[in-house]
Computed example of a mutant assay.
Amino acid sequence: MDVLIHLFVGLHIIGIAALLGGFLTQMKAMGSGTARFVPGMLHGALTMLVTGAVLVGLNQADDHSVDNIKIGVKLALLIVILGLVYVKRDEERVDKRLFGLVGLLTCANIFIAVLWT
């Protein structure tokens, strides 16, 4: 079971890398007001959602304790991120405040995962 959990943790990290990487590649464009949500950001957020749900299930099945409040906060942030990226994915330009909000929420989600014990 540990190998399976580690596999999904790796996939979860790949998802966050795709989301954050898409944001970081658009930072220069954000400064000039031409940033857009690239497909990799949507795919990364969806990967995070699916692998996160699987990780919660696998950890509970393996009798590891799961902090449901932490998972709920992370899920709420991810749903906001996913909603913004999904709704605005076809727009040629995204408002820089909205784009920055996605980056901020993504970083918040990372720090919640790492620092909340």
Rank of each mutant, 00 (worst) to 15 (best):
D62Q: 08
N68G: 08
S32C: 10
V38H: 07
K70T: 06
F37H: 06
T34Q: 15
D67K: 03
L58T: 03
H64K: 10
M27R: 13
L42A: 03
A35V: 07
T34D: 13
V56I: 14
D62I: 00
N68S: 09
V38E: 13
P39C: 06
L55M: 12
A29M: 10
T25C: 08
A45V: 09
V54D: 05
G40Y: 07
M27I: 13
V50K: 00
H64S: 03
V50C: 04
F37N: 04
T34F: 10
H43G: 14
G31I: 12
L49P: 00
M41Y: 08
L42G: 03
V66M: 04
G52Y: 06
L46R: 08
T51Q: 01
A35M: 09
G31P: 02
K70C: 11
K70R: 15
V38I: 15
Q26V: 08
F37W: 06
A29W: 02
N59K: 15
A45H: 08
R36D: 00
V66W: 02
A53H: 07
G52F: 09
V50R: 00
M48D: 01
T47V: 11
M48I: 05
D63I: 01
M41N: 07
M41F: 09
L46K: 10
G40C: 07
V54K: 03
A29G: 07
G40M: 14
T47H: 02
A61I: 02
D67I: 04
T25I: 14
A35R: 00
V54W: 02
M27T: 12
D62M: 02
T47L: 14
S65M: 01
R36P: 00
V50M: 04
A35I: 03
P39K: 05
G57A: 07
S32F: 12
V50I: 14
M30I: 08
H43N: 13
S32E: 15
M48H: 00
S32K: 15
D62E: 11
L49M: 14
V56A: 08
D62N: 15
Q60T: 01
L55C: 06
G40L: 13
V66Q: 03
F37T: 01
G57N: 12
H64I: 03
